[in-house]
Simulated scan of single mutants.
Amino acid sequence: MAKEIRAIVIAGNGTNCEREVAHACRLAGAEVVDIVHIAELLAGRVRLDDFHFLNLAGGFLDGDDLGSAKAGANRLLHARVADSEEHLADQLQRFVADGKLVMGVCNGFQLMVKMGLLPALDGNYQQQTATLTFNDGGRFEDRWTYLAVDPDSPCVYTRGLQGIYLPVRHGEGKFVPGDDALLERIESAHLVPLRYATADYQPTMTFPENPNGSVAAIAGVCDPSGRLFGLMPHPEAYVHRTHHPRWTREPELPEEGMGLWLYRNAVEFLRSEVV
């Protein structure tokens, strides 16, 4: 009998999308989905080792003081687990080394980038090499976006997809690599699974299709293994047809929302490759 897929969604310190993410994991087929406050991990009452799929949900970590998710990144990198010599970062590094999956959405993507989990080109998952900064428009954007998919990306989550339509809601979503050389390496390794696009799924730098001016229209990034993935749009916000902004005017919409595809790909990968 196959072991159950266990997903964990970290909450606390400003996240506000954990319930939606947990619901998406359940719909995708994960048998165990736990929403865990960060304090529970730091107290040692819950361990990442007991899960297969780590989800970093969106929100406003620490009020985005120091920039989006930077304070949260410092906490995860340097905080020690109570009554232990182990840091939470040690559990996270072990989680990655064991071939498990990590997905960060919006604030969770910002967190992954600022911790160094993405793009992690040289296998160093604790060195920040890129950032996410203020939208070019200088304001919070809340709108729906078309996203072109790179079919050659190693990304586990976007396998078999051609294009998706998801909402964004962020003030600091512009992806900026540390330098041009890093961008070239990311591009050549196909580590950009998703780009902001026009309605016919052609990548664009034009506002509002590209809501933040992200370099090279980058909406999401994965690591070379394809198992770690972060994106600014919210897949958990479109898992049913009634989440679509035009669901009352487009009766042909399928019951299942496009965002669920990413979570289902994750669960199917875990069931076939890890568990």
Rank of each mutant, 00 (worst) to 15 (best):
A28N: 13
A219G: 11
L88G: 03
V239E: 04
G59F: 07
R264Y: 07
A57V: 06
A71N: 00
R19E: 14
T198P: 02
L77W: 03
V96H: 06
F60H: 09
D122L: 01
L61C: 03
V267N: 07
L260A: 06
G29R: 03
D122A: 11
L66E: 13
D83F: 11
E31G: 12
V96E: 05
M1G: 13
E172V: 06
R271G: 08
G99M: 00
A89I: 14
E236A: 11
N55P: 00
G67L: 10
A7F: 07
G67A: 12
A237P: 00
G123W: 15
T204K: 05
T204R: 01
S68G: 00
E18S: 13
P208K: 06
E86S: 14
L231W: 02
P208T: 05
T206W: 00
R45E: 14
G173A: 12
G99Q: 10
A237G: 02
V113L: 15
H234E: 06
L253H: 08
D200L: 05
E40L: 12
L61M: 04
S225Q: 02
L262V: 09
T204Y: 07
Y146R: 06
D152H: 12
A120K: 03
T129F: 11
R45D: 08
D179C: 08
G226P: 08
P254G: 12
D64E: 05
L183Q: 15
P203Q: 05
V105E: 03
L147M: 03
P208S: 12
L253R: 10
G116D: 14
N13K: 13
F109P: 01
R264C: 02
S188T: 14
C222Y: 03
V21L: 00
S84E: 13
W261C: 12
A43R: 13
A79C: 02
G59H: 05
L111V: 07
A130F: 07
L121I: 13
A11K: 15
I5W: 05
L48F: 08
